[in-house]
């Protein structure tokens, strides 16, 4: 006969009011966080002094506190950790001021990254909600290795940046050609990226489990990327074959 020392205390999802989360799931999430290779590097202890929150840009606007994140992890508050993974970890601006200032040399910003990775691994709804606007960027970065492209910055996507995305009124193609750096004469990527280079990068994504992460978060984006990359690989293979023929 086994005895359970910790009473399972399931909680509901605070965001969507869904069914209670089992204690086993809370524990599994925390185990993933704790076993992250950087966990011990980012968390040493906590004096509860508040320097991290004081310097945190997000804490100025959100009811978000790096000190609270550290405390939740340090005290192994499983419900609190799960709760923080719904909204709070996404408020972090990843500036790492907290880490630069912590007298205990913790990195609350780094801990947030570990929690975000765990949230993705467990496919939490909050992840899907938060990453929806990221689709275009992720497609770009995974297939080309470039995060940003000139043709992504359109007045429709950025009305709040005002009427002056360029103060010179001319077609984007011409404006890009007028940049005196030849590797920048492109619209689809920030700079021209070699075919071979993007395939090497894709191999890294495959080998490091990043594609699996993506599949959990956005399966349709995953499908698109796999198609795009298969095509690129074929193209590269054709080129290699040509070289052999020569």
């Amino acid at each position: 006969m086994t005895t359970t020392l910790k009473a399972p205390t399931p909680i509901g999802d605070p965001l969507n009011g869904s069914a209670a989360v089992s204690y086993e799931k809370l524990e599994a999430i925390f185990d993933d966080i704790r076993s992250h290779p950087l966990y011990d590097h980012e968390l040493n202890g906590c004096l509860n002094c508040g320097i991290c929150t004081a310097t945190c840009p997000s804490a100025q606007y959100y009811d978000y506190s790096p000190r609270e994140i550290v405390q939740l992890l340090w005290t192994e508050n499983l419900e609190g950790i799960y709760d923080a993974m719904q909204e709070k970890i996404w408020a972090c601006a990843q500036c790492y001021t907290c880490a630069a200032r912590c007298p205990f040399q913790n990195s609350p910003g780094g801990l947030v990254m570990i929690m975000r990775e765990a949230a993705i691994k467990h496919g939490l709804q909050s992840v899907k909600d938060v990453l929806r606007p990221f689709t275009r960027v992720m497609l770009k970065v995974i297939s080309t290795g470039n995060q940003l492209a000139p043709n992504m910055i359109t007045p429709q996507a950025f009305p709040d940046w005002g009427p002056n995305i360029s103060k010179i009124d001319a077609p984007l193609t011409v404006l890009r050609k007028a940049i005196p750096v030849p590797t920048l004469h492109t619209l689809d990527t920030a700079w021209i990226v070699n075919l071979k280079t993007s395939i090497e990068l894709y191999t890294i994504w495959e080998e490091t489990g990043v594609l699996q992460q993506l599949e959990v978060v956005d399966s349709s984006l995953y499908d698109v990327i796999v198609d795009v990359m298969d095509e690129k690989r074929n193209e590269y293979q054709d080129w290699l074959d040509e070289q052999d023929e020569d």
Binding site: Y62, D63, Y64, E87, K88, A91, D129, P133
Partner: peptide, 9 residues
């Protein structure tokens, strides 16, 4: 772009 962490404000 609606704020995701709205309950924190």
């Amino acid at each position: 772009m609606p704020i995701h962490e709205k309950s924190l404000i």
